[in-house]
């Protein structure tokens, strides 16, 4: 049990995919499917002179959270940036399809990904589309799908789109969510458009606090695995249902956001326009103070 307690206190950002699962679920409850011992590896990496991983960078399986049956997937952001390849993506897809057949209380997605693995770009991109399709079908059938974000690789590219297809999104303090990463924008549009080495700017554009304040994430937690566990359990209890009412509300929510903040170029401009107190201090205050701050009106919503 000492190990479990230590894992619980451990930092989500620093932990491996399996340590995150171990600390997130009830102690000892995780059963992995197609684990590393089965060595289901990418057949595509060798031709690029890359060494594969026995699990292709993702762990999937079942367990319990506060005694409730859940299916869980965790990407390993330290292996090729947690990016989607053929096997990696198929493991996640299989988990979601299995959930459709035998519905758990929820599916938890511990995303930690730069997006598509370019060495397997077509298989990775298609896997992302298949995963989106499977998530939406699962939500339609009434199973909550919760995204938990806060790893090294963030949730970029198709990973950012998958995130926004989930029923609820919880971000930890280091989370970043985006489609085009800062480096990609800088490479394509120039350093004047986005200086990817300006860490504070990157943080303001796609970081956890910005996403949470604006309604791009539903829960914000400090970096511990224990805090993520608590938030995940709370989120499962109340999720938006996938249907016309929700989609119309999302259409309205995103239209309102575009109208209210479409002229803003940086996050503090949004926070100022929204009337948040001390918009220039959001990045400086600690997590406790941050969590007592009001969010932008409408950020707490079921339109997802």
């Amino acid at each position: 049990m000492i190990a479990a307690v230590q894992i619980g206190r451990a930092d989500w950002y620093e932990a491996s995919a399996r340590d995150r699962i171990a600390g997130l679920l009830d102690a000892g409850s995780f059963v992995e499917f197609l684990g590393p011992e089965q060595r289901i590896m990418s057949p595509h990496l060798a031709q690029f002179d890359l060494t594969g991983a026995f699990d292709d960078g993702i762990a999937v399986g079942r367990g319990t959270l506060d005694g409730q049956a859940v299916l869980v997937a965790a990407q390993e952001g330290r292996f090729l940036g947690g990016a989607f390849g053929e096997v990696h993506g198929a493991k996640l897809l299989g988990l979601l399809r299995g959930a459709r057949e035998r519905p758990p209380r929820a599916v938890l997605l511990l995303l930690d990904t730069g997006g598509v693995r370019l060495q397997e770009a077509n298989a990775g991109e298609l896997a992302i589309s298949e995963v989106i399709h499977a998530i939406l079908n699962l939500r339609r059938s009434g199973v909550p799908v919760i995204a938990l974000i806060g790893g090294r690789a963030g949730a970029f590219g198709g990973g950012g789109i998958i995130t926004a297809c989930c029923s609820r999104i919880v971000v930890a303090e280091h989370a970043r969510i985006s489609v085009s990463g800062p480096e990609v924008i800088e490479t394509n549009k120039g350093v004047e458009e986005f200086d990817s080495r300006d860490r504070a700017l990157v943080w303001r554009v796609c970081g956890a606090r910005s996403r949470y304040l604006l309604g791009g994430a539903d829960g914000y937690v400090t970096g511990s695995i224990a805090a993520m566990r608590k938030a995940a359990a709370a989120m499962i209890a109340d999720v938006p249902s996938f249907g016309m009412t929700m989609l119309q509300a999302e259409q309205q929510r995103l239209t309102d956001r575009l109208h209210r903040f479409g002229a803003c170029r940086d996050a503090p401009e949004i926070w100022r326009a929204a009337g948040l107190p001390e918009p220039d201090r959001v990045g400086d205050i600690d997590d406790e103070a941050f969590l007592t701050m009001p969010r932008i009106a409408g950020a707490d919503h079921d339109a997802r």
């Binding site: 926004a164 458009e193 986005f194 989609l247």
Partner: peptide, 22 residues
Amino acid sequence: MARREELLGLNEYLAHLAKSLA
């Protein structure tokens, strides 16, 4: 590809289109 698009949550807008078609 622009800072402003990502600032406003392009991932949510693209996801919304994918959801609507699905």
